[in-house]
């Protein structure tokens, strides 16, 4: 019961500050003080209290986009363990359900974008579709590497086996999986070098341009969903990199430190790297796929459990 409550608390409390942490790190590196850690939270609250303006072109599909995107990400968040090897809503084969839930959210975000009838949104949806399709194999291969040692396709089984048998540095396959998942995280959450969340030109955006027309509570839903996605994918990587024990205190502590580490890493990457040219992004993602595939092969060669 305690575990479940803690999981829920983290799911509700942490994603937005994590997003804030990324911004803070970026500001520090740029020599600025940066906004407070809770700035994304204030933004969301402000949006939730507003009314809304809808385009005359749109239909209910437009309103359904944020709702479905948020709820599928929440469900994905309930599936992934956070700080302990099991999660409140884990089941067999939940790894695949997890990946497809992210896909569901994306599908509806893209349709909602096309519902506005604007070329900007169409452009964003097209890019999102292209890059997500290429990121998908990398995600699945990485999740595969995660699951093979345990012999079962659920996060619970996979993370229960990881700390016992070997941590990251004991197995090159896991290292490559973490690398591929890192790329997938950057692509899925539209961060540099795939997309720039702070860009000001619609023509160069991917995620931001898809949600240009949303406002009020809808936009708040999108922001929450976005932060959650970062948090959820981050927690998969944290569990992969840090062997988190089932202990009731060290586990959560390690988990929190890991998530903060991911936020810092994303911040650093955003500060030191430039955005890739759009035509180069596919190569980046194909590279992630190849890396994950090599990881699986290494796992094969290293003798399967």
């Amino acid at each position: 019961m305690f575990d479940v409550l803690m999981h829920l608390a983290w799911l509700i409390l942490l994603p937005l500050p994590m997003l804030g942490l990324v911004t803070v790190v970026k500001s520090w590196i740029a020599g600025r003080r940066g906004p407070p850690l809770l700035q994304p939270f204030h933004d969301v609250v402000k949006l939730l209290r507003k009314g809304a303006v809808y385009s005359r072109t749109t239909t209910w599909v437009f309103a359904a986009g944020p709702v479905v995107a948020l709820s599928s990400t929440v469900l994905a968040g309930l599936i992934v363990p956070m700080g302990s090897p099991s999660s409140p809503f884990g089941f067999s084969a939940d790894v695949i359900v997890f990946a497809y839930l992210l896909g569901l959210g994306r599908f509806f975000t893209m349709t909602a974008a096309l519902d506005t009838g604007s070329a900007f949104e169409g452009m964003g949806a097209s890019r999102e579709g292209a890059f997500a399709a290429l990121a998908e194999p990398a995600l699945f291969l990485a999740l595969m590497i995660l699951c093979v040692p345990a012999g079962g396709m659920s996060f619970g089984e996979a993370f229960a086996v990881l700390p016992a048998s070997h941590g990251l540095l004991r197995s090159p396959g896991l290292l490559l999986a973490a690398l591929a998942l890192g790329v997938v995280l950057l692509a899925e959450t539209s961060r540099i070098p795939v997309d720039d969340p702070n860009t000001h030109l619609e023509l160069t955006m991917i995620h931001e341009v898809m949600v240009l027309d949303h406002g009020g509570p809808d936009l708040a839903f999108i922001q929450i969903g976005y932060a959650l996605k970062l948090f959820v994918l981050g927690s998969v990587i944290v569990h992969l990199v840090l062997p988190i024990p089932a202990d009731s205190w060290t586990g959560p502590a390690a988990f929190l430190a890991g998530q903060a580490g991911i936020a810092v890493a994303v911040g650093i990457i955003e500060s030191v790297m430039a955005r890739l040219r759009l035509s180069r992004v596919p190569q980046f993602l194909i590279g992630a796929c190849v890396v994950a595939a090599v990881g699986v092969l290494v796992l094969f060669t290293g003798g399967r459990p």
Partner: peptide, 27 residues
């Protein structure tokens, strides 16, 4: 099979977002 199915799924989603979106949505 796994990455192939994943890639097919991702591309199919893009394809049917296009089909549905261009036919039924917008102006």
């Amino acid at each position: 099979i796994v990455p192939a199915l994943a890639l097919i799924g991702g591309l199919a989603a893009a394809c049917f977002v296009k089909a549905f979106g261009v036919v039924f949505l917008g102006e």
